[in-house]
Design a protein around this nucleic acid. Structure first.
Length: 598
RNA sequence: GGCCCCGUAGCUCAGGGGAUAGAGCGACCGCCUCCUAAGCGGUAGGUCAUAGGUUCGAAUCCUAUCGGGGCCGCCA
């Protein structure tokens, strides 16, 4: 038996993605099919639920499969019997060092060291591409996020949605989707009229008059430069004109100025949209009418009167006939008005047109990232997309819970009047884009998140961003040190290092975590859950730190081995593989992998 | 009243059909003549809100209840 000494699978075809878990699952499936061919299992069993996963307890081995338990019932056999037969087949594979039945019918697998060594070489060869998946098969996915009203700078409340959407988009891209990042500009409603009037007052101010920032107008200083710009453009010519003469022009001007600012805010966070869609452009162009007509053609638009809401009925409730969308036919609780009683469109109408537009552009999947306060809107949006795509395009709405701000453990509320209004710029300038982005992803999207400025700036293991970056920096430090000692450790050299020297259980443990990366990517992408990447990176960093400290007691585990170039290179290759994965993961989150900590 | 989300260690949260439920913080005890101790190890701490149900197996799925938050009118 020489298999323990051989590095298995040092090179894979370029177009084949490295994923040890799916490789071994493939082996399990092939073995089961062979058993079926031999009459040991019934033919045509559904193998979809057969999983190969990392065991909860590392003591159980490298991987575990539930095959025997899943198939026992449909096969009409005892789990134990299936497992015993399967174990025999699996053990015959050169990658398997040990296969045994355990617990209620699990099969625990231990892989030969050569598999892990081959993995490390492959990770270094793949570099930033390691973990990429073909799962999405190039499906066109539209991720709509941020979509803040163009009436002012972005504030902290928007940051989480921006980071989440951007990371989700990157994750889906990494998992093989063709992703479009899109921003829906709410420039069609009454709020942009308010913006225009507010800008007008600043325009008057620029002309030396006292601005009248009445209740209900936007008082922010950020409109002062807009007023100046308006003076540049119009001089004093609008000063005595009635609103009707300047409103439309100023709306356009101010909205464009706000969008310019918002694009800058997003850029400061490292977010870049592919498409900006305008709500206003849906009005007066027949697009809303076309979308409504489409629905009408399906019998989903009608004139009717809604029941008053149950429970607390509003004082001024009167039953009125309106134009309604029959969203109940696609899972909503009540039908929704698309026209007000005065004949104007409701806010919902352009949204119908917008989603129709997205469907028409040929996307295979739509994702809307919305604030949690839009929860009541989800069903009608899904109904729209289901109806307008004939159930072909799934819409997933990700609701982002609020961010609670803290300063030194003390919560504080944002208030424009109290001067505690925190903009995105404030956060990025104080905390930095990297820290902000990572922190925003350390919680599931549907859980509220505490953001404490003091903690976020802390450079210690209590700060997960720092902790992960430190792990990456440590590896970089090792490579620098090794290079100074004359050890070649560029990737090309490491990829062909004699990795059979990597055989310590502790080293195999690190490799095992690295092997989980492609699997993690697929799970996170499938669930639209970028936070899983952040948690995985934390675990990987923790493993690296643990291994590092093992070198304190057992010097043979240090990455750089004095006077032993080849052994050092093998160990550095392992460290490098960790750095490659951290770098790739941080790349998805939009965080820079630090090369050194200062 | 209806709908959505949440309830897991003292605190903040992962885990979302599988084996003895995890991490960080806080507490306590340890580890630097050594690649960054900005780090690591260990101890203590849980009726996974409650009650039923489905399943070979439930923190995980279903139902009900309790508790917390959000949403529910021609506002966007």
């Amino acid at each position: 038996m020489t298999r323990a000494g051989a590095v298995i699978n040092p090179g894979q075809p370029r177009d084949q993605r490295m994923n040890l878990f799916s490789d071994i699952r493939g082996l399990v499936i092939a073995s089961l099919e062979a058993m079926a061919a031999d009459g040991l299992l019934p033919a045509g069993l559904d193998l979809a639920n057969v999983a190969v996963e990392p065991p909860r307890d590392a003591g159980h081995g490298d991987m575990a499969t539930n095959a025997a338990m899943v198939l026992a019932k449909p096969a009409g056999a005892k789990p134990r019997d299936i497992a015993e037969a399967l174990v025999g087949r699996l053990a015959a594979d050169p990658r398997i060092a040990e296969a045994e039945v355990a617990g209620p019918g699990f099969i625990n697998l231990r892989l030969v060291p050569g598999v892990w060594q081959g993995l490390i070489a492959q990770v270094i060869r793949d570099g930033a591409g390691y973990g990429r998946s073909d799962m999405g098969q190039g499906a066109k996915v539209n991720v709509e996020f941020v979509s803040a009203n163009p009436t002012g700078p972005m504030h902290v409340g928007h940051v989480r949605g921006a980071v989440f959407g951007d990371a989700l988009a990157a994750l889906l891209d990494f998992a093989g989707h063709a992703v479009t990042r899109e921003y829906y500009i709410n420039d069609g409603g009454a709020q942009v009229d308010v913006l225009a009037r507010s800008a007008y007052e600043r325009y008057r101010e620029a002309n030396g008059l006292d601005p009248e920032i009445r209740e209900g107008l936007y008082p922010g200083d950020y409109l002062i430069p807009v007023g100046e710009a308006l003076k540049q453009k119009y001089g004093a010519s609008l000063l005595d004109k009635p609103e009707a003469e300047w409103l439309a022009e100023l709306r356009e001007f101010a909205t464009e100025a706000m969008m310019e600012m918002i694009r800058g805010d997003l850029a400061a966070l490292g977010v870049h949209m592919d498409v900006y869609s305008s709500e206003k452009s849906l009005y007066g162009t027949g697009k809303i009418e076309a979308a409504i007509e489409q629905l009408r053609g399906m019998g989903l638009i009608y004139e009717g009167v809604l029941e008053p809401p149950k429970g607390k009925v509003p004082d001024d409730w009167e039953p009125r006939e309106q134009t309604l969308f029959r969203s109940t036919s696609h899972g909503d609780d009540v039908d929704r008005p698309v026209k007000k009683s005065d004949g104007a469109w409701t806010y919902f109408a352009p949204d119908i047109a917008y989603h129709y537009d997205k469907v028409s552009r040929g996307f295979d999947q739509l994702i809307d990232v919305l604030g949690a306060d839009h929860g009541g809107y989800v069903k009608r949006l899904k109904a729209v997309v289901a109806a307008l795509s004939d159930n072909r395009v799934p819409l997933d709405v990700k609701l982002i819970q609020l961010v609670k701000l803290f300063k030194n453990g003390e919560p504080f509320k944002m208030s424009k009047r109290a001067g505690t209004f925190v903009t995105l710029r404030d956060v990025v300038e104080q905390a930095g884009a990297d820290v902000t982005r990572f922190m925003m992803l350390t919680r599931k999207n549907d859980a509220a998140l505490d953001f404490d400025f003091a903690k976020v700036l802390e450079q210690s293991k209590d700060n997960p961003v720092f902790y992960v970056q430190y792990a990456h920096a440590r590896v970089c430090s090792v490579i620098r040190k090794a290079a100074e000692a004359g050890i070649h450790c560029d990737d090309a050299t490491l990829a062909v290092a004699d990795l059979s020297r990597l055989d310590h259980p502790a080293e195999m443990e690190l490799a095992r975590r690295i092997a989980e990366w492609p699997r993690l990517v697929e799970i996170a992408a499938r669930g639209h859950e970028p936070h899983r990447v952040a948690f995985y990176l934390y675990d990987l960093a923790s493993d690296l730190h643990t291994h590092w400290n093992r070198g304190n007691e057992d010097t043979s585990l240090r990455f750089v081995q004095e006077g032993e170039v080849e052994t050092s290179q093998a160990k550095i290759a392992l460290a490098r593989a960790v750095a490659v994965v951290i770098s790739a993961g941080l790349g998805i989150l939009g965080v820079t992998p630090a090369e050194e900590m200062r």
